[in-house]
Amino acid sequence: MNNQPAPQRLLSWFNPLGRNPGSWAFILNRLTGLGLTMYLFLHLMVLGRLAQGPEAYEEFLALTKSPLIKLGELLVIGAVIYHGLNGLRVVLTSFGLGVRRQVQMFYLSVLLALVGTAIFAFRMFAG
């Protein structure tokens, strides 16, 4: 008898089986939101090095040259673009605009996030 709503069932938020594009929008929005929140606080902490003078900061900059960090940065950029555009979708639909076009708006957010990430990837690795 374990079918009633319960906080422990939070993993079901992220289960897209049998669900529609709108659920993917919600899942991605939630995951990117959580990820970006973590990144935000990390970012703020790291920038604290600016206060310690040029050496401390350049030392940290050297670290960011590693491909793993760059990959992480790309993830952040993709997440930012997606979360931002999907957020606009939520704002628009919440004011009754384009509710019938919400799926297309979601696809557009994903597409633009991928394109944006690709552009940044190109600059980072090839540019």
Partner: peptide, 9 residues
């Protein structure tokens, strides 16, 4: 509501 639009589907 978090705009998954599953209800409408």
């Amino acid at each position: 509501c978090h705009s998954a639009f599953e209800c409408t589907a």
